[in-house]
């Protein structure tokens, strides 16, 4: 699979259709995001698989935003999985990236990774390498809903009180690009105090994720306290789908119902 990706990147770079390609590279035994700019420099390219498939994924969209803000005229390529591509669609909608300035190199996730992620669509629309695998039906949210109210309360209270307020979930999130963040607004979140305000801190973030979260799971992976944030955001996506028939990142030209005038559309 990696050879096909390498060929594709090499082609994009050599025919000058992109200025650089944001992907992953293996250096010093570690995987890191990298901007490839020369076609004969692609040796360290890797896809983020070390011990398990996809165990070293990084928010490449976030890297792309950083570079694109500095070089708005140039076209860049980016290595995308299903989730990354959903992220790009959301970033187009939120005017953070321009669709005609981005070229994707899509790879499909293997079944093992899709299962671990409970991913609904473990492949991008524009696929370059890998085999499409079936989406997984999400069971985690349902299991939580089946518990009774007091059980859910003690579960989440327990989870939220583990929070050390590292803000890692926000910092790693490819959908978090705001220069000013509500989580740093002292009227909402008290500064420098632990335990965190339950449930204000986590629900504020969850509310901001309702029409954005693309279910990449990087927040879950980076949380030092092991709070199941992804489960929380999966629930917001489920609500958005049930109430407004909206799933973020599924259509390239989507619009968020939260910003549209008028009542919720008929189900």
């Amino acid at each position: 699979m990696i050879d096909i990706v390498r060929q594709k990147i090499s082609k994009l770079l050599s025919d000058g259709s992109v200025k650089g390609v944001v992907a992953l590279a293996m250096a010093n035994g570690h995987v890191a995001p990298c901007l490839f700019q020369k076609e004969d420099d692609l040796e360290p390219l890797c896809l983020g698989d070390t011990k398990k498939p996809g165990d070293a994924r990084y928010p490449l969209n976030k890297v792309l935003i950083t570079i694109a803000r500095q070089y708005p005229e140039d076209v860049f390529g980016v290595l995308v999985r299903g989730c990354d591509e959903r992220g790009l669609y959301v970033l187009y909608r939120l005017n953070q990236l321009e669709p005609d300035k981005v070229m994707t190199i899509g790879i499909a996730c293997p079944q093992e990774l899709a299962k671990a992620c409970e991913c609904k669509k473990p492949y991008p629309d524009e696929l370059v390498a890998g085999e499409k695998t079936e989406g997984i039906t999400q069971q985690g949210v349902q299991d939580m809903e089946d518990m009774d109210l007091s059980k859910r309360f003690s579960f989440w209270k327990n989870q939220f009180s583990k929070c050390v307020k590292c803000y890692g979930c926000r910092d790693i999130c490819p959908m978090c690009f705001c220069r000013e963040c509500s989580l740093e607004c002292e009227d909402i979140i008290s500064k420098g105090e632990l335990p965190v305000d339950i449930p204000v801190f986590h629900l504020t973030r969850a509310m901001h994720m309702t029409d954005r979260c693309i279910d990449c799971g990087l927040c879950d992976e980076t949380c030092p306290s092991g709070i199941p944030l992804r489960l929380l955001y999966k629930k917001t996506s489920k609500i958005m789908n049930a109430e407004f028939g909206f799933t973020s990142g599924i259509n390239k030209n989507e619009q968020s119902p939260l910003n549209l005038m008028g009542p919720a559309p008929e189900k």
Partner: peptide, 21 residues
Amino acid sequence: THTTPCKTSPVNEGKLCIKGW
């Protein structure tokens, strides 16, 4: 521009605290 925790590091496995971030 940014700090990113190293996922392949055996020490922090892709996690950081507020200071590290």
